[in-house]
Simulated assay, not measured.
Amino acid sequence: MSDINAFIDNSVKSNDVFLFMKGTPDFPQCGFSGQVVQILNYIGVEYSSANVLESDELRDGIKTFTNWPTIPQLYVKGEFVGGADIVKEMFQAGELQSLLSEKGIAVKSDA
């Protein structure tokens, strides 16, 4: 396993919720990453993230790791959930909150 794959694998397995995004949660650098950050913040879930703009190797590596062409990418308990469109649809349907609760991850009760 390459160093970048090891980093990605460790990141998604050692954090309950992990977001690969463009920018940071405090300063998203693309609208799609910003949408996912807003959703996660709204439902009050704790998460960690990595800025793919800091490394071409990471930006390319995460796409290969999941065989998913776009960023952001959200992981819950080591499993790939999806990108911005999927996360948004799941949130609007209440499925994201249910998934997090089923996995034992605390969300705000009013979300």
Rank of each mutant, 00 (worst) to 15 (best):
F32P: 02
V81S: 11
I4G: 02
F32S: 05
Y75V: 06
D85W: 10
I86K: 03
M1E: 04
T24F: 05
K13A: 07
K88S: 11
A93S: 13
G23N: 07
I105W: 06
T66A: 15
E89Y: 15
A84P: 02
R59H: 07
N67K: 12
R59M: 09
E54V: 00
V36S: 02
V76H: 02
F32H: 07
A106L: 13
F65M: 06
Q35I: 13
F32W: 07
P25W: 03
F80E: 01
G78T: 14
C30E: 12
P72H: 05
L99H: 07
D110H: 11
M90I: 02
S14F: 10
L99K: 13
I43R: 00
D110F: 09
G31H: 01
I8P: 04
S49M: 03
E54P: 01
S101Q: 13
N67L: 10
G34P: 06
V107F: 03
L100S: 09
N41C: 07
T66G: 09
E79N: 13
A106Y: 02
A111P: 05
V17H: 05
M90R: 12
I71F: 04
N41L: 06
I62D: 01
M90Q: 15
K88W: 00
S109M: 04
P25C: 11
M21I: 11
I86S: 09
P69N: 06
K22L: 08
T64F: 14
N10S: 14
L19N: 08
G82M: 04
Y47Q: 03
T24P: 06
F7V: 07
G104A: 04
T24W: 06
F80H: 14
S2A: 05
G31D: 11
V52A: 12
L100V: 15
N15P: 08
D26H: 15
E95W: 14
K13R: 14
K103E: 12
Y42L: 14
E102I: 00
F18Y: 15
F7Q: 10
Q73G: 06
V37C: 06
I105Y: 06
I39C: 01
Q35E: 06
G31W: 00
L96D: 01
A6H: 04
E89W: 15
G23W: 02
S109N: 10
K88E: 01
V45M: 09
G61T: 12
Q92A: 10
A50T: 00
G61I: 13
S98M: 04
G94T: 10
S101F: 00
K13Y: 05
E79C: 07
D3R: 08
F91I: 00
D56N: 15
Q35H: 10
K108H: 02
K63F: 04
G23K: 11
Y47D: 03
M90E: 13
Q29F: 07
A6W: 00
S14Y: 12
S98N: 10
P69C: 10
N51C: 09
A106C: 03
I4C: 06
D9L: 01
K103G: 00
S49N: 08
N67P: 07
D60Y: 12
E46N: 15
V17Q: 02
M1F: 07
D85K: 00
K103Y: 12
